[in-house]
Amino acid sequence: MNRSKHTAFIKNKAQELGFMYCGIARAEFLADEAPRLEKWLNQGMHGKMGYMENHFEKRLDPTKLVPGAKSVITLLYNYYPQHDLAQNDTYKIAKYAYGKDYHFIIKDKLKAFMTDIHEEIGEVDGRVFVDSAPVMERTWAQRAGAGWIGKNSLLLNKQSGSFFFLAELILDLELDYDGPVKDYCGTCTACMDNCPTDAIPEPYVVDGSRCISYLTIELKESIPDEFRGKFKNWAFGCDICQDVCPWNRFSKPHQEPAFEPHEQLKSMNKADWEELTHEVFNEIFRKSAVKRTKFEGLKRNISFAKNTHL
């Protein structure tokens, strides 16, 4: 009885906090994922993201993160913008980075969520995660019925596409569990066909070391020349494999004021980007995820995207 009551409370609370989906999976060792992750790492598809090799066991076993874990709760939070700034003929940044850094916005919601769980249910041990620890979030989301993992390796949801953030609560609390949904990619290969750097060599496998998001954010050294002329004006991240995905025609604009872009960002043309100063960078991206690439990194990306020919 309590299990159902607690599950209903958690799902209602997720809705109250503005999450578009809440699903729950049983916390257990991800046996199927171990060989897949190992193969991907062995093939060097993580590029210079050395941290991907760390905490192998923790990635696969939630009880290593929360002793006695019983449930992994997956939450989706919409970030699809009212206006797609990539439609302008200028340098582009990924939609998720238009407004304030999602880590802070969602982390605050998750902390409030945990406080409410403690008040309602009592002593529950658990941790909250938003892209900040070795959690196989897409696998857990799939197990919790939040969608299926598409050929571009992102989570796709039939009702709302893929422009959302994933977050998790791992709790030592027994709940009612959701089941997975089926894969609706079918024979579509739009994401694979449209990737300018051939970062999706086979369905459901992304070669991170060739992905524009990796090259513009994670890679700290010079961008290899083989990618020159292939950036399509992307200066921070890339949305191509999402923009071409048929399921994203169901995306609806978010209702989160913190994700609204800075006024100046809306009207920046190529010259504005190319002449960007440190001062303007700090003003526009003060609390944005774009800070991850730092001013010098963004300038490097713009210069690389601009200089399309050797």
Rank of each mutant, 00 (worst) to 15 (best):
Y98I: 11
S251K: 03
N282M: 10
H46L: 03
S160V: 13
M136Q: 14
N301H: 02
N2S: 15
C22D: 00
P246H: 09
G23T: 06
D198Q: 15
N152F: 05
W140N: 07
F250C: 06
S222Y: 08
C241N: 06
I121K: 02
Y21E: 09
V280G: 00
Y214L: 07
L276I: 06
H118E: 11
E263S: 15
A25W: 02
I93T: 08
L17T: 04
G44S: 12
V72K: 08
M45H: 15
F165D: 05
P257N: 01
Y91Q: 10
I217M: 14
H309R: 14
L155W: 01
G44H: 08
N42R: 15
E279G: 12
C211H: 05
I10L: 14
M192E: 10
L110D: 06
G208T: 05
E120H: 05
L276G: 08
F29A: 08
I212F: 10
T197L: 11
C188S: 07
K230L: 14
Q242D: 10
P134W: 00
K294V: 07
R26M: 10
I121C: 01
R210F: 05
L276K: 07
K294C: 00
P134H: 00
L65K: 04
F250D: 09
Q242C: 11
D239Q: 10
S222I: 04
R249Y: 05
Y91E: 09
I10Y: 02
H278R: 14
P134F: 07
A31L: 13
F231S: 06
K232G: 04
G145V: 02
V244W: 02
G44Q: 05
K287Q: 13
I217L: 09
F295D: 07
H55W: 12
H55Q: 13
I212T: 04
V181H: 03
K151F: 01
L298I: 12
N157C: 03
G161R: 05
V244H: 09
A146Q: 07
F164G: 11
L175C: 00
A27S: 06
Q142W: 03
V72Q: 02
F129R: 01
M192A: 10
C241Y: 04
D243W: 04
F164N: 10
L110I: 02
D198E: 13
H118L: 03
P134T: 04
I117H: 00
K111C: 00
P81Y: 02
C185T: 01
I149W: 03
G126Q: 03
K232P: 00
K291I: 13
L17P: 00
N301M: 13
T139K: 14
A14V: 01
T189C: 07
K232E: 15
R26F: 01
V181C: 10
I217H: 02
E137V: 08
L173I: 02
D84K: 14
A235C: 01
H278C: 11
E16M: 01
A305G: 13
A235K: 12
C191G: 08
C195N: 08
M45F: 15
A86P: 00
K5S: 13
